[in-house]
Design a binder for these strands. Structure first.
Lengths: 210, 210
DNA sequence: TAGATTGTTAATCGATTAACAATC
DNA sequence: TAGATTGTTAATCGATTAACAATC
């Protein structure tokens, strides 16, 4: 029962299928068709069936996919059951928003603590998660065996802080700063560049409409 | 001098090239090569040259692309000079973070106001941007001619608020809620589903490493 | 000159869409 | 049965990578 590596685009779509499936369950709908999912996402319905085939989810002819079954299949294949402990670096508004974000727990994302360098913030708590001084990070990363960091510090500090993270043994960085970090090849970086995202959105949808 | 429609992936990369180019300028580097850009982004260098060709940016054999020229070319082609007035819906931590985000102004994104339904927040200001009650939105959207909204309300309210936005004449929604909104086809939606993004990140990079 | 880089074409690779038989 | 939907293959489309001549 080998899991084949799913493409980035398939993974993103599967996550959105999950959101839609959960909504159907909340509305007490027992089945959902590939056509309904496709229509909501404005994509082709054979794309949906193909994606679901990748995770070996099967539907029923004439009725579609059973929602409770589909939800479980998606959870299993998207590794929701594997707990992913993370630190949030930067306790500003964005770091705080992410620390409070209740949705993450369904996905296995578990925020253990926040780090900042502002003296007034240290030892405060956000939703039971304590804010520590950044100097405590290496020690705590080792002790708690954390190798994932969410980086939400200001642009000017991003590269320096990222270097500190790498020295502390962090291997995976979810980068919210508008900086393309320069890091060793073995460190995995996922850029969540909001400004870049807005540019894409606005150029695609706002000024280039046919 | 027709602009050809750039693909979503090219647009995203061009935005990241912009970040790197700005960094080079700050470090007083006069030139940047496609190879340097490619290495930072861990992509192929001919991809960089091809993308830059799309916006008609030309380099110099043996030295690369002039940074100040490249910055200007990227700004022009990514429409930074066109001011995009937006409203932020939801004045929680995420809405506040986006309202304060200084980076946006370089990209032509201009936050005019925030909207919320919590009485205590109304009339407060975030970085000179006032928070209004959501009921004021239709009137203000018309008066200020705003048709772009950034949606940062809780999951449970997202669909209802989105419907309100559409009724108020909003045409473009940058959706930060973990909900796949159901909206008329003519409304353009850009999903910034952070949970979905984390799933993609973690499945790709954390559990499926070769 | 030798060497490095651009600009560009061709080859490869992967993702999406179309089509339809099988099924209930 | 008739009609709707899945499951799957083939066709199309688009994006990435390889290769290399042209240039300075």
């Amino acid at each position: 029962m080998e899991k084949t590596k799913l493409s980035l685009k398939t993974l993103t779509r599967l996550s959105l299928y999950y959101n839609i499936t959960c909504e159907y369950i909340e509305n007490e709908k027992e089945y959902i068709t590939s056509r309904e999912v496709a229509k909501r996402l404005r994509i082709d319905d054979s794309q949906v069936r193909k994606d679901l085939k990748f995770i070996n989810a099967t539907g029923k002819t004439k009725v579609g996919f059973e929602t409770s079954y589909l939800k479980k299949m998606l959870e299993t294949n998207l590794n929701f059951h594997i707990k992913k402990d993370v630190f949030i670096i930067g306790a500003g508004n964005l770091g705080t928003a992410l620390a409070k974000y209740g949705e993450f727990k369904h996905y296995g994302l578990n925020v253990l603590a926040l780090f900042d360098n502002t003296p007034e913030k240290i030892n405060h708590e956000i939703k039971d998660k304590k804010i520590f001084h950044i100097s405590k990070l290496p020690e705590m990363a080792k002790k708690l065996n954390v190798n994932i960091a969410i980086l939400t510090v200001p642009k000017i500090a991003a590269q320096d802080v990222a270097n500190t993270l790498v020295d502390a043994g962090i291997k995976y960085i979810w980068n919210f700063s508008p900086v393309v970090l320069e890091l060793p090849d073995e460190i995995k970086v996922w850029n969540e560049n909001l400004a870049a995202s807005f540019v894409t959105f606005s150029c695609q949808e706002i000024y280039r409409q046919e």
